[in-house]
């Protein structure tokens, strides 16, 4: 069953359409929510609630538009709200200079992949910690832009603000991320990722 058929079924009240959409989008949506909320249980709860809300409001959905981007944007917005209620913060000061340095090298040279599983794990942990140090909204911006691959125009629709605001907020989020990492590694320089 393709997506249009699934939505058509759902709009007729046939929940097999919802099951098809769940199969297609659940994992990706939970991962996006997790990257913002950093809590697997919470991420799953957010996504399940989003599917139920989509079920309730599917009659308002324009079936000519793709379901995925609309749904994933709503999930990320829900994750921001949920994460904003949490006070957890992880300090990058917990990272050692070597760990941060490894991360910076990986980011600076994407063709030089990590040599070992341990280095890969360190890199992932460093990025995870850096994300946690951002505000939920900044995390959402990074996740929408880099994980979901949304354009700034699409993000503006999702976050209901002008594209210029998104551009400046995204720049601030990247700046914050870069600044956090730079403070841990003296070799870090201003990079093209600020663009």
């Amino acid at each position: 069953m393709d997506e249009r058929e699934a939505i058509a079924r759902l709009q007729r009240g046939d929940i097999s359409g919802l099951e098809a959409l769940v199969r297609t989008y659940y994992v990706r949506a939970v991962r996006a929510a997790y990257l913002v909320a950093h809590d697997r249980d919470l991420a799953e709860d957010i996504v399940q609630s989003a599917f139920l809300r989509a079920y309730e409001r599917i009659d308002q959905f324009d079936a000519r538009r793709p379901f995925g981007p609309w749904f994933l944007r709503s999930v990320v917005n829900d994750a921001v709200k949920a994460a904003s209620r949490q006070t957890r913060r992880v300090s990058l000061e917990q990272m050692t200079g070597d760990e941060a340095g490894t991360l910076i090298e990986r980011l600076a040279d994407p063709h030089a992949g990590p040599d070992t599983d341990a280095e890969q794990a360190e890199t992932r942990e460093a990025v995870r910690a850096a994300l946690l140090a951002l505000s939920p909204i900044q995390r959402a911006l990074i996740v929408q832009r880099y994980y979901l691959g949304l354009s700034e125009a699409e993000m503006a629709i999702s976050m209901e603000c002008p594209p210029g605001t998104i551009k400046s907020r995204l720049h601030a989020a990247r700046e914050r991320l870069r600044g956090l990492l730079a403070s841990l590694h003296p070799l870090t320089t201003r990079s093209e990722a600020d663009r």
Binding site: V27, V30, R31, A32, Y34, L35, R40, A43, R106, L107, P110, H111, Q120, T123, R124, V127, R128, L131, I142, V143, Y146, Y147, G149, S191, E192, A193, R195
Partner: peptide, 20 residues
């Protein structure tokens, strides 16, 4: 810049796949 974006995306995907 494009490569850098891919790299960040790859890292985000790895983090998410590891957790979920």
């Amino acid at each position: 810049a494009i490569d850098r974006r891919k790299s960040i995306r790859r890292l985000l995907e790895e983090i998410a796949e590891q957790a979920i």
